[in-house]
Structure formats: structure tokens, C-alpha cells
Amino acid sequence: MRLFYSIILSTLFLCPVELHAMPTKITIRVKAKDAKFIGTAIGGAAVIVRDNLSGSILSQGVTAGGSGDTKIIMQTPLTRYQPQTDSTTAKYVAVVDVEEPTLVDVEVQAPLSRRGAAIKGTTQLWVIPGKDILGDGIIIELPGLILDILNPYTHQSLSEESFKNGVFVFRVNLVMLCGCPIATGGVWDANNFEVKAYLKKDGKVIGNYELNKTDVVNLYEGKLPSPVKGSYELTVHAFQNKGYNAGADRINFTVQ
């Protein structure tokens, strides 16, 4: 009898075990620092999942859905295992076929609709065949702000008439990386943001300016004194004092 069992065990160990790829889901979400999730309304976030060893792409796509519930995300203290998302919150579900535990690299870039402000983030995780990652899934947080100079526009040629009473009013639009609004007294309070600018001519800074929040949501404005004729470069940057987010934009314009 012992000989029989020995033969059976030997046969089991000698027979090769064939591994089969098993589709495994990975829920991936991208969240703006001190704000909400990056979804369809701001173009979504590009997601690429790669095998860490080979570098081959296992899955890629774009997050889609809403930015999430403001009260849950921004105004409710989180407890362990408490969901931050619901069925409508932006996500990308990667389906990867792995035969064995596999270390993967996840790379995201967002927001896609504002490439000038897009930030890249990465993380790594082990994927176990058949062990889906659901719910909130993997959340990658990105710092940053979306700042767009609205006026003057790129390569605009300003005439003397553009400077009323000797000044030109320039304006920028500022939002969180998820597109969330900035307003005085709002969830993202304009009083917590500094927005400043500097003007260059021939590569040298010739002026520094502070922008003030207007009554319009997201809109800031400042005043440029009438410069001499020539080509100029205007850089505007914003900094969130409590959330430690930052953003910038730069354009060129001319004065006739």
C-alpha cells in the first residue's frame, strides 16, 4: 500500500501543471489633491497598465464618470474601509490576463482636456490571478491647478486703445485639477489662493503683479501698465496655501 501511494505522489509531482491566464479586474481612479475625482467633465485621465518585468501594455483607457459626492469626499471625516466613491464616480476598469502573481506599473495622466496643465502619476501593485480589485479600487492622487490666461490671448497684438486709462486688464481662469470651482467662501475658497504674474521683455522681468478674485466664479484679474512697443511674455502662477497645489500658464503678446 505504501508503495502504491508513493507511486501516486511521485506521478503528481512529475506531471507538469499548466498555468492558464485568468482575466482579473483592476478598478483605477484618479483624484485631484484636496479635491474630487477626475472624470468625463474634464476629459478624464489616461491610464496605462504595464507588466513591470517586460514593459508590455496589459491594458489602457480613460477614466469616465462623475467627479463624486462633494459632501462625502470633502466634508465627511473618513473611517477605515469607508467608500469614497459610488457607482457613478469616474473610474477605469482594467482587465488583465495574468497566469501568476504579476507586478504591474500603473501610469495616469490628467486632465486630458487641458494638456497644458496635465500631471502624471504612477504606482505599482501586485495582481493576483482572479483576485479582482473593486470598490474604490486603486486611487492615484495628482497635485495641481488648471490655470488659463484668457486675456490677452496668445500672440495678441495690443494697440494703444487696448490700454484704457493707461492700464490693460488681464484675466485668468483658475480651477482645481478636477475642474471644481474656486469661489469666495466656497468649498475651494478663493481666499486660500494666491495668484501672481510677472512680465518679461527681451528675457528680463520688467514687472510683477498681483491678481484679485472677481465676483465671477474662477475668474481673477490684474492690471498691466501701458508698456512700450515690442514683444512680451506674461507668466501667471497660482498657489493654494492650505492644499499646497500650484499651477501656471504663459503666453506671448505684442504691443504696437
Rank of each mutant, 00 (worst) to 15 (best):
P23V: 11
P23S: 06
T24I: 08
T24Y: 07
K25W: 03
K25H: 11
I26S: 04
I28R: 06
R29W: 05
V30H: 01
K31C: 10
A32W: 06
A32Y: 03
K33S: 14
D34I: 03
K36E: 15
F37Y: 15
I38G: 01
G39I: 07
A41M: 09
I42E: 07
I42W: 07
G43K: 02
A45H: 02
A45K: 09
A46S: 12
V47H: 07
V47L: 07
V47N: 07
I48K: 12
R50T: 11
D51S: 09
N52M: 14
L53E: 14
L53Y: 13
L53G: 12
S54T: 15
S54Q: 04
G55M: 11
G55C: 12
G55K: 03
S56I: 13
S56T: 11
I57D: 09
L58D: 03
S59A: 15
S59R: 06
Q60L: 14
Q60M: 14
G61Y: 00
V62D: 04
T63W: 00
A64P: 02
A64N: 14
G65W: 03
G66W: 06
S67F: 05
T70N: 13
T70K: 12
T70A: 15
K71M: 10
K71Y: 10
K71I: 12
I72W: 00
I73Y: 01
I73T: 00
M74K: 04
M74C: 11
M74V: 10
Q75P: 01
Q75I: 05
T76Q: 10
P77Y: 01
L78R: 12
L78V: 09
R80I: 13
Y81L: 12
Y81W: 10
Q84L: 15
Q84R: 15
D86R: 11
S87Q: 14
T88C: 08
T88Y: 11
T88F: 11
T89E: 03
T89S: 01
A90R: 04
K91T: 03
K91L: 09
Y92D: 08
V93M: 10
V93G: 05
V93I: 14
A94K: 02
A94E: 09
V95M: 11
V95Y: 06
V96L: 07
D97V: 08
V98Y: 01
E99T: 15
P101E: 10
L103N: 11
V104D: 01
D105N: 12
V106M: 03
E107T: 15
E107V: 13
E107M: 13
V108Q: 07
V108C: 05
Q109C: 13
Q109I: 15
Q109A: 14
Q109S: 15
A110K: 06
P111A: 08
P111Q: 04
L112E: 01
R114L: 13
R115E: 13
G116T: 04
A117E: 07
A117T: 07
A118F: 00
I119Q: 02
G121H: 02
G121Y: 05
G121N: 07
G121P: 02
T123S: 12
Q124F: 12
L125N: 03
W126I: 15
P129D: 01
P129I: 06
G130R: 03
K131P: 02
D132T: 06
L134N: 13
D136L: 11
G137P: 08
I138M: 13
I139T: 09
I139F: 06
I139K: 04
I140Q: 05
